[in-house]
Measured scan of single mutants.
Amino acid sequence: MDVFMKGLSKAKEGVVAAAEKTKQGVAEAAGKTKEGVLYVGSKTKEGVVHGVATVAEKTKEQVTNVGGAVVTGVTAVAQKTVEGAGSIAAATGFVKKDQLGKNEEGAPQEGILEDMPVDPDNEAYEMPSEEGYQDYEPEA
């Protein structure tokens, strides 16, 4: 019985440690998101679009440190934060509304985080759909 109880105690310690790591990862992701939003706020009209992409990228980098179902929630929060940063930029006159959601080359930025393969159960990952990809044929 002692062996059984000791095993359960060790398992509990492992769960607590994993929860603490997840909590730490979420806190880091939130900190990076805040950094990115402050970065966007300090940019001029020309830099705002690039700044919004930076927020998304920093958040995406930190999301990889967070495991399990938390990833889905962090990704949703990050996307809403990026959308909010863009709205703030438009409201303050840093950028025109028609410039939001495009990178410096004018290509749409939507789907940055949505296409990231995420499995809350950590069982399997699927690649994003290939609808947006084109076949590449090298020139002879």
Rank of each mutant, 00 (worst) to 15 (best):
M1F: 00
D2L: 14
D2Q: 12
F4L: 06
S9M: 12
K10P: 00
A11R: 01
K12T: 05
V15Q: 00
V16E: 07
A19N: 02
E20N: 12
K21N: 11
K21Q: 12
K23A: 06
Q24H: 12
G25N: 02
G25F: 15
V26L: 11
A27E: 02
A27K: 12
A27N: 11
E28G: 04
A29N: 01
A30D: 00
T33K: 00
T33V: 11
G36W: 06
L38A: 07
V40K: 01
S42A: 13
S42L: 12
K43D: 00
K43Q: 15
K43N: 03
K43E: 01
T44H: 01
T44K: 01
E46G: 02
E46N: 15
E46R: 14
V48S: 01
V49I: 04
H50E: 03
G51N: 05
G51F: 07
A53R: 15
A56C: 15
A56N: 03
A56L: 07
T59H: 00
E61L: 11
N65Q: 05
N65E: 07
V66I: 12
V66C: 07
G68L: 08
V70S: 02
V71K: 12
T72G: 14
A76W: 12
A78R: 12
K80W: 07
K80P: 02
T81E: 01
V82R: 14
E83V: 14
E83N: 09
A85W: 12
S87M: 15
I88H: 01
A89R: 07
T92Y: 02
F94P: 03
K96L: 12
K97L: 15
D98M: 06
D98E: 14
E104W: 11
E104I: 02
E105H: 02
A107W: 07
E110W: 04
E114F: 14
E114L: 13
D115N: 08
V118H: 11
D121K: 10
N122L: 07
N122E: 04
A124C: 07
Y125G: 06
M127P: 04
M127W: 06
M127R: 10
P128A: 11
E130D: 11
E130V: 15
E131T: 09
G132S: 04
G132M: 12
Y133V: 08
Y133R: 01
Q134W: 07
Q134T: 04
D135V: 07
Y136F: 13
Y136T: 06
E139G: 06
